[in-house]
């Protein structure tokens, strides 16, 4: 089944992608194309391959592409290292942001921002200029500047970690942002803050993929397309109403699509 929404010049194009980890096949022919300014949602049962797809696009070394291709702004990115993908504008918001004790959040954000700026041939920021920039972005996710002096994600609550991910997205200004279950573990207020941050950052040039289990995020951020993933494939694509149907009927309803294939 095809789920392409290929029209203009997609910022991200995944064509017939097969991938495995430790010889275990996980993706079994994924197709998706995201144009600038579009918001796509990917939904599906646990273990269907959603997070794997996001990690493979970001270049996680534990996964091996066995067939197919990933194109970013028209270029095949298979040979690129994770940092080259990030510098060129691919952003992955982690489902479980990693805690790195001892590494200052502020310094990490500065090095990451400058890596992206260097790629964009913009002037790198010194500590003072970067602090001005980061304080402006902190407003978007309603984070206190005290977070900057702490170690990366260490001791952060679930909500704080997710807000830190969106802060990074705001600083890096990616062309494609894949947000893996950014809504999981968030209370209603935190969800609204995160969703509002994402909306403020999104623009006509940025494509967004939201990986989620719940309609509540999609109530805040209305997607252009909703894809249902099952057993390593996208089995159905529709508009935002598809998420409502999923909420109503559950994933058993989508099993019928597989049977019809």
């Amino acid at each position: 089944m095809q789920s392409k929404t290929k029209e203009l010049n997609p910022v991200l194009e995944v064509n017939n992608l097969f991938a495995s980890t430790e010889d275990l096949p996980i993706l079994k022919g994924v197709n998706i194309a995201v144009n600038p300014g579009e918001i796509h949602a990917i939904m599906g049962r646990n273990g269907c391959g959603k997070s794997t797809l996001s990690k493979i696009i970001a270049g996680h070394p534990s996964y091996k592409i066995t067939k197919g291709e990933i194109k970013f702004t028209g270029q095949d990115i298979q040979s690129l290292e994770p940092e080259q993908r990030a510098q060129s504008g691919i952003f992955l918001g982690f489902q479980y942001p990693i805690e790195i004790p001892g590494v200052s959040n502020l310094e990490f954000l500065r090095v990451a921002t400058n890596a992206r700026r260097k790629f964009l041939k913009k002037e790198e920021l010194d500590t003072f200029d970067f602090e001005d920039l980061v304080r402006e972005k902190l407003e978007l996710v309603k984070m206190d500047s005290a977070f900057l002096s702490r170690s990366i994600n260490q001791g952060f609550s679930g909500g704080e970690k997710k807000r830190n991910e969106i802060l990074q997205m705001a600083l890096l200004e990616p062309k494609i942002a894949i947000l893996d279950e950014t809504d999981s573990g968030l209370d209603i207020d935190a969800l609204r803050i995160v969703a509002s941050g994402i909306k403020k950052i999104s623009n006509k040039k940025t494509g967004i993929i939201l990986i989620t289990h719940y309609q509540r995020l999609l109530d805040e951020i209305k997607p252009n397309y909703v894809h249902v993933m099952s057993d390593g494939q996208i089995i159905k694509t529709g508009d935002s109403d598809l998420a409502l149907e999923l909420e109503k009927y559950g994933y058993e309803w989508t099993d019928n699509f597989l049977k019809k294939q």
């Binding site: 996680h60 290292e81 994770p82 940092e83 993908r85 952003f91 982690f94 790195i100 990490f108 890596a115």
Partner: peptide, 17 residues
């Protein structure tokens, strides 16, 4: 990987770690 996915090279990420 987390640090590299933010644009830090393997060398920079290892150094920070």
């Amino acid at each position: 990987f987390y640090m590299r996915s933010r644009g830090l090279t393997l060398e920079e990420a290892s150094k920070l770690q």
